[in-house]
Design a protein around this nucleic acid. Sequence first.
DNA 1: GTCTATAGATAGATAGAC
DNA 2: GTCTATCTATCTATAGAC
Lengths: 184, 184
Amino acid sequence: MTLNDRRQQILTAALATLREHGSAGFTQARVAARAGVRQSHLTYYFGTRLALLQAVARLAVDGQLAAIDSVFAGPSRTSVAKALANVTVRHESTRVLMALVQAADQEPSLRALCRELAEGIAERTEGFVKRLNVLATREHAHLLHALSVGLAVVDLATQRPNSKRRAAAMLDTTFSLMTSKARS
Amino acid sequence: MTLNDRRQQILTAALATLREHGSAGFTQARVAARAGVRQSHLTYYFGTRLALLQAVARLAVDGQLAAIDSVFAGPSRTSVAKALANVTVRHESTRVLMALVQAADQEPSLRALCRELAEGIAERTEGFVKRLNVLATREHAHLLHALSVGLAVVDLATQRPNSKRRAAAMLDTTFSLMTSKARS
DNA sequence: GTCTATAGATAGATAGAC
DNA sequence: GTCTATCTATCTATAGAC
């Protein structure tokens, strides 16, 4: 199917553009150039910029959830912290995340997707935390999610060295705190 | 001084615009309309859009640090968690934060300001955490900072009810975890 | 020195050719 | 049905009037 091929081709280029240039750099011209098509083709295949963004966001969310899935298979608490930091504290992922957040702020239709992502991550996290500590709650999972988001955003803003190492350390510390104490 | 008055007037309008509309809605036309001046005046008084954004960011960072200052004066752990959530988990603040992060990602000159903000908050947080637990480290303070950033971003993205209450609960939980256990 | 009118660039969307 | 050329809107920056 040529139509779906083209759509896929544009989607891939769009996601790559978002990862590299973030929300502000996500222009139809740039995506089109990357996909090797004319700008007006984006309109043809997706209608509006928002529709394209929604499709890209869908792709990104699925990808991120799939990446998270493998994180919690790690052998130890520390290795999981490291894997989680590696998946979440990535400038490329953070740019996509921020674009999604911004778009959701102004476009309610995207909020459901954001909730799906947040819930999906919390769900996957909860299982792991429960293995650490049977008294762990969904709140702990949401807390970890928020923490990883914050670490990612702060890192993009400050761009300091060793950010992944430090993020992994903080996640591990938090796991550790949750392990040693259960508190309602 | 008329010049400084005008600058101030424009700055105020610019900050308000950023708080309401976020990074994408931060256009010279909108700021000018709000300030009651012509768009070209922004160029006259600030040179470029980036320079204006830098000035606004400076203002916003100072304001946020000042707001944080009063947070840790709270009487109890729980009241501090609540106050912190009230200051950080605000859509208006989060929009400014996100705009700053995005700008810093592409404009290295703004990263110093982001680091200043992050360090400033961590510093102020550290004192409080140390009062909770003498073994607390700067890492705990950075962890709390990242957590509050993440809570703010997640809330802007999902816009769920009771977000401030839940954020306060998570911060309080984290304080509690840090209190009951010190771990290097 | 302050402000206006306008230019130049780029965004996204449309109408119509093939 | 697929693609091209074009159009309008909007953004930021400049040149020059007062």
